[in-house]
Amino acid sequence: MSKILLQVEDLCTSFFTRAGEFKAVDGISFYVHEGETFGLVGESACGKTVTGLSILRLLPEPAGRIVGGKIILDGTNLMELSKKEMRAYRGKMISMILQDPMTSLNPVYTVGNQIGESVRLHQGLRDDKVEDEVISALRLLRIPAPEMRIRDYPFQMSGGMRQRVVGSIAMSCRPRLLIADEPTTALDATIQAQYIALFKDIQKQTDVAIIFITHDFGVVANICQRVAVMYAGKIVETAATSTIFKAPKHPYTSALIHSVPRLDRKDDRLYSIEGQPPSLLDLPPGCRFAPRCPDVQEICHKQQPPIVEISDGHSVSCWKVK
């Protein structure tokens, strides 16, 4: 197995509001290998986006703060970097793709200008060199006729093309780690398939590690080698993708997988998890899934389950699993 690039240990991120402390991310640990695609899956407000923002240290301060844990990227603990050092890391070492290609590009600048900005910032190149870099970044994302495209404005492009431009900006400085937050959710099915195939390709070329944040199990299956499933601020299960799909051990993981309708068979009724995720202001004292869990035991309501590694690379946080 290749080297570990990113190690997140016991990360806790909270939002402080008038209503109290939201524990958006509450003690999660995971690692990402070099050149690997690691999926963070969960429903809205489970903390997956906040995890991504925490790694980049781009939380909306002062409300959001990392309250504990370590984020070690290639031997450096990002938590110990100054703001200035962190800025240099962003873009160069880590970058991010956001969900909505409509809003993540600035409508008043050309595409070339926006990619160039990040190149100039991090590589300190002269203007004539910048354009070469921009074109090569566009080419990496297989945008047709990049020499022409750099003079286009975002509104002149389709949603799929725009999302490729966003990808070019993120990849323009050849980062080691890319955090992609629902990059395909806004795209149509056939365009989504194109985009995912493209990213697999880019990964082969550049060996970038990707943290793929999504709620869509179909996409996860397609692109990720390993997956962590999050629920209410905690990781409940981590495993290789096919293990997650074929032998999920946590009741939440298996419920989620079974509640998605299948394209390859006819279901008459879907398995559904009753109730809703708990409020982050008022979390249950024991396992967070206990109130909705079909296999709940007494201990689940009292104590949080430990994370147990049941086989190599497959860890579960559930009392049922010993």
């Binding site: 402080f16 509001t17 939201f22 409020s279 982050l280 008022d282």
Partner: peptide, 20 residues
């Protein structure tokens, strides 16, 4: 039945949290 989920994308809510 309040759903108190911090929606960090939601910029319409005033950020009064974390004020000194």
């Amino acid at each position: 039945m309040l759903s108190i989920m911090p929606n960090i994308e939601d910029k319409t809510r005033p950020r009064i949290s974390g004020l000194s």
